[in-house]
Every structure is written in structure tokens, then in C-alpha cells.
């Protein structure tokens, strides 16, 4: 019995050292800071030769809507990590200001705007999908979506397309 446990441990070790081959990243938030981590991870995956699928759902859909994708903002209210008192964060223009500052820093690091980033990921061979439930809930139309969206899919399709991938929810 003890050997069985040892063998199991060895099997786990072999598995752990296996390189990541595919990732399936879900982006569910529509704030600037909610969208970028997923995009950076998807692009980073492609740069490493890892297959990447990005699935946008709920407010994350804003990142693939032509009219909204480059107008995402940082939340200054309900975001304790900002270190800004809620009442101060609620002052008109505060979110735009914080967004402006963050975009400046990102530009310095060569992080592209959302539309360009999505284009980069698609050009790099990543696949972009939108969520059917959110698409219907927000009364969206095909023409609202950026050109890189391959398809609007159901959660079932998503799992099918994620076969063999690590699923990352952001």
C-alpha cells in the first residue's frame, strides 16, 4: 500500500513538471484593471508558444465592444486597493483621472490600448470568444463586436473549446 502512495507521488511530480500547453482565459470584469491581467496573460502565453483562448463574459464583454473597448475605466469606488477613501473616489472625474494616470504608466511599459492588444492576441494566433448569455442580456448585436471576435458561444461550447487547457478565471 505504501508503494502505491509513493507511485502516486511520483506520478504527481511528473505531471507538475509538464509545461503548460494551452490556456483558456475568462475575462468577466469590465474595468480597466479587470481586463488587462487576462489580456497580458493571453498575449504572454502566445509569446511562449502556448495556445490561448480568451472568453469574454458579463461586463468583460465591454472589452470586445467597438464603442467601449478603449474607454474602460479604473474603479475608484469600492476598490480598497486604490487606497482612496470612497467619498473621494466618488467625486466626478476621479475615475477618469485615475484611469488617465494608469494608462500613462501602462504606455510607459509599452502595454497597448485594449483594441490594439486584442488585435495583437488574435494576430498571434489567440482565439477570442464572447459569451452568449451576456450577449443576449446586454441586447448586443454582431456589429457591436470588434472584428477579432471569432464567435459568440455558450458555456458548453466554451468547455468544449477548452479541452486539455488550463482554465483561468479573471
Amino acid at each position: 500500500m505504501s508503494t502505491a502512495i509513493l507511485e502516486e507521488e511520483n506520478a504527481l511530480k511528473t505531471k507538475a513538471s509538464e509545461p503548460v500547453k494551452r490556456v483558456s482565459i475568462i475575462i468577466s470584469k469590465g474595468t480597466l484593471d479587470g481586463v488587462y491581467p487576462g489580456l497580458i496573460m493571453a498575449n504572454g502565453a502566445r509569446m511562449e508558444g502556448i495556445e490561448a483562448t480568451v472568453f469574454f463574459t458579463f461586463f468583460g464583454m465591454n472589452a470586445i465592444l467597438k464603442k467601449k473597448m478603449d474607454k474602460l475605466k479604473v474603479a475608484t469606488v469600492g476598490n480598497p486597493a486604490m487606497g482612496m477613501p470612497t467619498l473621494l473616489g466618488a467625486i466626478p472625474g476621479m475615475s477618469s483621472f485615475a484611469t488617465h494616470m494608469m494608462k500613462k504608466e501602462m504606455d510607459r511599459l509599452d502595454i497597448p490600448p485594449v483594441s490594439e492588444f486584442i488585435e495583437m492576441i488574435e494576430d498571434a494566433g489567440g482565439e477570442i470568444y464572447g459569451c452568449k448569455a451576456a450577449f443576449e442580456m446586454f441586447h448586443l448585436k454582431e456589429e457591436d463586436l470588434c472584428a477579432q471576435v471569432k464567435e459568440i458561444i455558450t458555456v458548453g461550447d466554451f468547455y468544449e473549446k477548452s479541452a486539455g487547457a488550463q482554465i483561468i478565471f479573471t
Binding site: M47, E48, G49, E119, M120, D123, A124, G125
Partner: peptide
């Protein structure tokens, strides 16, 4: 980007 990935396939 597309060409870059084609020139240096993988990473």
C-alpha cells in the same frame, strides 16, 4: 505580429 509568429514559430 502575424509574420513574426510565422518567421519564428513557437515562442
Amino acid at each position: 505580429t502575424k509574420e513574426l509568429y510565422a518567421l519564428f514559430p513557437g515562442a
